[in-house]
Each structure stands twice: as structure tokens, then as C-alpha cells.
Simulated scan of single mutants.
Amino acid sequence: MAKVLVLYYSSYGHIEKMADAIAEGARAAGALVDVKRVPETVPEGIARSAHFKLDQSAPIATVAELEHYDAIVVGTGTRFGRMSSQMAAFLDQAGGLWARGALNGKVGAAFSSSATQHGGQETTLFAIIANLLHFGMTIVGLPYSHQGQMSMTEIVGGAPYGATTVAGGDGSRQPSEIDLAGARHQGKLVAKTAAKLRA
């Protein structure tokens, strides 16, 4: 049975919801799944004044535990077309794992959110994927077998590179059912791919 880690950073809860949906999909495909988040680097007073969602139930991950998973799905909101500094700071500490090749051949995947439809979701996904490729991981995206991402009747997230959602400029838009379905679909594909590579 494949072990999957859904590793995320979420300021306002949008990526937290997407992480839970990815985990749901991976569990439906038979994987053992942990959902963990990276440490917050913003001082608590500033985070509270900016209305960050600080009551997230996922435990804090450590870099050392990454090598104990068959697959790692990394998610973060977009910061000016790139990954958040919190996620970057966490991954930057994984040099020892890279040097040992500890993640070579494992499955990697990415998911993201942005304030607007064209706010950098895809470049953020590529930033995450580039990191995972440097770790030697095999990438699983969100193929068009999730046809919801092709909808023209409503605003939807999703890209061939990973599940996404659009939060709105004020953060008021929550992940839609199509967005969450895309996340579950990607989680399922990650789990199935990891199981095949373990065989």
C-alpha cells in the first residue's frame, strides 16, 4: 500500500481545503495518507492582523520525514507567480535529502491557488514541479481525464500541471465542487501511480 504525504501551506484556508480533497482522492485509491503543513514564518501578530487562518488542524511536517513516503503532493498559494516563501523555506532545507538521492523515483505532484484566474497558478505549479524534479521525483499532473477543468460555464481552477482554485481578490471565493473534484482526481492518480511504482 502506497504512503502519500499531502504537504501544504495555506494562509487563508483555500489550500487547506484542496489538501483535504487530494487526501480524500488518494485514500479512495487505497493509499495511506498523511496531511501536514509547513511552519508559518510570519510573526503571529502580523498573521492575526492579516486574518490568516491559524486554527488549521494538520500537524507541522519536518524535512526528515519526507523520505518515508512513496509520494509527496505539494500545495501552496501563489505569491506573485511563484510559490510562497513558507513553502520555499521548507523545501530549501531538503538539501541533505537531495544529496543522498533520498527522494529519487518517488512520486511528486503540485497544487495551487491564486487570487485571480490569471494570477500565476501555472507558474506556481511549475515552480513546485521544478523543485520536485530536482529531487528526482516522477511527476503526476492533472490530465484532461478531469474534464471539469475545461468548463466554460463558470470560473474553475485546474491545469494539466495540477489542481488549482481561484480565491478571489478578497479571498471570499472558496474552492468549487469542480476544483475539489480535480483535487480528488489528482490525489487518486498520485496514489495509483505510487502503488504501481512500488510493485
Rank of each mutant, 00 (worst) to 15 (best):
K3S: 14
V6I: 11
L7G: 08
L7H: 02
Y8R: 01
Y12H: 13
Y12C: 10
E16N: 13
I22P: 00
A23V: 04
E24S: 10
E24W: 01
E24D: 15
G30F: 08
K36C: 02
K36M: 09
T41A: 15
V42G: 05
E44P: 06
G45S: 11
I46D: 13
I46R: 12
H51A: 13
H51F: 11
A58G: 07
A58S: 11
A61H: 02
E65L: 04
L66E: 03
H68T: 12
I72E: 00
V74G: 02
T78C: 07
T78N: 08
R79C: 09
R79W: 15
Q86N: 14
M87K: 05
M87P: 06
A88S: 14
A89E: 14
L91I: 13
L91K: 03
Q93Y: 00
A94Q: 03
G95N: 10
G96N: 08
L97P: 04
L97T: 06
G101E: 11
G101I: 09
N104E: 10
V107L: 03
G108I: 03
S112F: 00
S113H: 03
S114G: 13
A115V: 03
G119A: 06
Q121R: 10
E122K: 01
T123S: 15
A130C: 13
A130L: 10
L132C: 10
F135G: 07
F135D: 09
G136R: 05
M137V: 05
V140H: 01
G141R: 01
Y144N: 11
Q149F: 03
Q149V: 06
Q149L: 13
M150D: 09
M150C: 09
M150Q: 09
S151D: 13
T153Q: 12
T153P: 00
T153N: 14
E154L: 02
E154W: 01
I155W: 04
G157N: 02
P160R: 04
A163R: 01
A167W: 05
D170W: 05
D170C: 06
G171V: 11
Q174W: 06
Q174F: 05
E177A: 15
R184N: 07
H185I: 05
G187D: 13
K188E: 13
K196Q: 15
K196L: 15
K196S: 08
K196H: 12
L197N: 08
A199M: 15
A199I: 12
